[in-house]
Amino acid sequence: MDVFPNFDGLGGIGDLREVVGALLTIVLIVAVHMLIVSAIIWAIASANGNLAAASKARAGVLVALGAAVLAGGGVAWMNWLMHLGEQL
């Protein structure tokens, strides 16, 4: 039994794929910029002894890394699930 999602069964699915792809690109670009800015602020705040700003910048770095991992890993996870569904 070959089970595969019917992507053509819903009208406008091609447009939806383009929108999701564009949103994924925007999320990754924003996450990388946030990572760069937060890392710079973390370094400057740590060098000047401002521990409050350094801890907030460190949290920004962790949030940016988490967002990038989730956005990038979402595609791989979805492909893995679709491949798994074909085997059922």
Rank of each mutant, 00 (worst) to 15 (best):
residue 15 D to P: 03
residue 72 G to W: 08
residue 16 L to D: 11
residue 12 G to R: 03
residue 30 V to Q: 12
residue 63 V to A: 11
residue 38 S to R: 00
residue 63 V to M: 08
residue 64 A to G: 04
residue 42 W to D: 08
residue 28 L to Q: 13
residue 19 V to T: 12
residue 56 K to G: 09
residue 54 A to Y: 01
residue 29 I to K: 11
residue 36 I to K: 08
residue 46 S to M: 07
residue 52 A to G: 07
residue 14 G to D: 10
residue 60 G to Y: 00
residue 72 G to Y: 12
residue 60 G to F: 01
residue 75 V to I: 15
residue 34 M to K: 14
residue 2 D to R: 11
residue 83 H to K: 05
residue 3 V to G: 10
residue 76 A to R: 10
residue 13 I to Y: 06
residue 28 L to W: 10
residue 79 N to H: 13
residue 41 I to V: 13
residue 64 A to I: 06
residue 5 P to A: 07
residue 2 D to H: 14
residue 76 A to E: 14
residue 17 R to V: 14
residue 78 M to P: 03
residue 27 V to F: 10
residue 9 G to F: 06
residue 29 I to T: 14
residue 86 E to C: 07
residue 75 V to C: 00
residue 39 A to N: 08
residue 52 A to M: 11
residue 23 L to K: 12
residue 64 A to R: 02
residue 22 A to N: 09
residue 70 L to V: 14
residue 8 D to N: 13
residue 5 P to C: 09
residue 31 A to I: 04
residue 12 G to C: 07
residue 44 I to V: 14
residue 58 R to L: 06
residue 65 L to K: 11
residue 33 H to N: 15
residue 43 A to P: 02
residue 82 M to C: 00
residue 56 K to E: 11
residue 69 V to E: 08
residue 78 M to F: 12
residue 75 V to F: 12
residue 53 A to H: 07
residue 54 A to N: 03
residue 25 T to C: 00
residue 17 R to H: 07
residue 76 A to H: 13
residue 30 V to C: 02
residue 14 G to Q: 09
